[in-house]
Amino acid sequence: MGAILKDLLKYNIEFRVGSMLIAIVLVMSALSFVSPYPPSDTFVVAPDAPPSAAHWFGTTSRGQDVFWQLTFAIRNTLAFGVLVAMLSRVLSLSIGLLAGYKGGWIDRILMSVNDTFIVIPLFPILILFYFVLRDSMSTLLLAVIMACLGWAYDARLIRSVAMSLKAREFTQVSIYSGMTTREILVREHLPYVMPIVFSTTMNNMNWSIGLEVTLAVLGFMDINSPTIGGMLYWANQHTAVVAGIWWWIAFPIALVVAAFVGLFLLAVSMNEYIDPRSRLARMGGGAR
């Protein structure tokens, strides 16, 4: 693992830039643990102060320090994105691989469920959930709901790769070597699907973070736990743009964009590294 990281850092500029951006984001989230102010307390500092030596990113109209507030916000937002991505990856991987490999009625059932999720209009459903659940709606619950709604496209993608893998001779050889279905899926097919998993993870995180921000900005969220969307919501509530409190909006957006771009670059470079063709080329089998 260490050697892989060293290779990537040494030979891949995308990876270097990406890991730098993600490092900034991670350091920010880690700083939340040493924040001098509790995240939900208001009017702990003088409001509406522009960036200065005392308050690097300025303060909000609610008397909060933007920098320290942002550390909590990015931590929650990132955790939310990772959670949604993880859960939905597990779903799309297991369903996609199984449907593609097994075929027949298993495939038909799984794919009809899959297509149902693809055609469900997402945004109204999320708002519906908010109105039904109201007070019991937490970030965690939203993550689970989004994971359930966010696996379907990628499962289809994975299924198509699994179907082509199934037709390859080594799959038959694996069966006749006595491997179980689980072994074939995990040991033989998974390595070919990993590049898809990586790039879709990144897409999925962007999608879920984006939706979370959207929902929070509109107020359809638990606005008291600080997230990037939550900060923007309060900034809007206090008409920060009109009032010229640009730092309340600019810094959260800059940080979330850094996270997006960092994730994207990491996904691209990792993809190139674990892509079966590139792996074979490094092992010396690509020239055939």
Binding site: E169, F170, Q172, V173, R187, L280, G285, R288
Partner: peptide
């Protein structure tokens, strides 16, 4: 009953 297939380069997973 065991099979042998056509393409030797495909009979084994290239990554394994």
């Amino acid at each position: 009953v065991q099979p042998i297939f056509q393409n030797p380069f495909e009979s084994f997973n290239p990554l394994k």
